[in-house]
Structures are given as C-alpha cells and as structure tokens.
C-alpha cells in the first residue's frame, strides 16, 4: 500500500482533518491535524491491510512560521514506508504523546522536546535527553542563540589569528 492508497483509506475515517498528498522532491506525505494523532495512529497501526507497527523516527522541523513533526512508519508485513506530517504553532507547540502506542516514540519525543522544545502531553518521562538538565533553550530552533557562558565557562574562544 503506497502513500496515496493509505491516504484514501485514512480519509474515510477523518475526512476533514487530513490534507491531500503532497510531493516534495522524492518524498510524498500528507498533513494531519494534531488533535487526531492518537486515533489516526491507532488506525494506521491496527487496521488490517496497513499494519504500520514500526515507528522509525520522529523529526521535528522548525519552519520559521510553525513547527512541523515528521512521523515515519514502516509496515514490515506489507513492506511499506510512509511519512506523515503535522503542524504546531510556534507559541504553543503541544501535541499528544503516542508513546503508549509505539514504545519507540518515547525517546524520539524526548529528543524532539529537548532539541526543539515541543511538549508532548501524557508522556511518561519527558526530560531532556541530549543536553544537560539545566540547559536553557532548545538548540535546533532556528532562532536559538548560544549563551556566551555556561556556569561561568565561556563558550566562545578569543580570536588568536587576528593578533599576529
């Protein structure tokens, strides 16, 4: 089942909440509204014929106007891979966690929270994963500015080449 077949199948369940299939270069995907994430992924995971049981990764993208989350799902039974996207507002990037449906999601969501600052509701253990606990800011955001010191340790070096 390729992306357009999945799209027509899913469209029956959520006619209003799903965009058309968009081709962006070699990759095709569709957008869904963030509020239906749980129901949508339950359908994708358990409906006979789709069975996308493997969540490969979640990528958070800073699109300047909004944040985007990219979900990649595999169906080992049918040999398919699909990509889905959702948009979150910059001011209030909150979405429901799907870690109860896919165990793999738990760490990917922690990474998205740590590096992009997206809040996952009902997540069992939403902590920073890569950066230290006391780190301020979310480094993968496009407007992230590195602080000039961390606990009194300067983060930039004196330019030695100009001196000579």
């Amino acid at each position: 089942m390729n992306i357009s077949e999945v799209h027509t199948e899913v469209k029956k369940f959520f006619p209003e909440k799903i965009s058309d299939v968009i081709a962006s270069g070699p990759l095709s995907f569709f957008y869904f509204e963030p509020e239906i994430i749980k129901e949508l992924f339950l359908v994708l995971r358990d409906k006979i014929g789709m069975e996308f049981k493997h969540l490969s990764y979640i990528a958070a993208v800073d699109n300047k106007e909004c944040f985007e989350l990219v979900y990649c799902l595999y169906s080992y039974r049918w040999g398919n891979v699909i990509h889905l996207k959702t948009r979150l507002s910059r001011e209030n990037p909150i979405i429901k966690s799907i870690s109860d449906l896919f165990v793999a999601a738990e760490w990917h969501e922690r990474e998205a929270y740590d590096l992009m600052g997206i809040i996952f509701e009902e997540h069992p253990d939403l902590r920073r994963i890569m950066m230290p606990d006391d780190f301020e800011g979310h480094p993968l955001r496009k407007d992230f500015k590195e602080k000039d010191n961390y606990h009194g340790i300067p983060t930039s070096r004196e330019k030695i080449l100009g001196k000579f």
Binding site: S24, G25, L27, F29, S56, Y57, V70, C72
Partner: peptide
Amino acid sequence: PKGEVYSAVESARGELGYY
C-alpha cells in the same frame, strides 16, 4: 532543488537513515 528525501541503508547496526 527544494524538496525532501529520506534515504536509508542497512548498516551494521540496522537501518541508518537521513531525512
């Protein structure tokens, strides 16, 4: 050109992919 891609290979530790 503008666009997106996901490419994965079967590495020694399983799927290694770049989005």
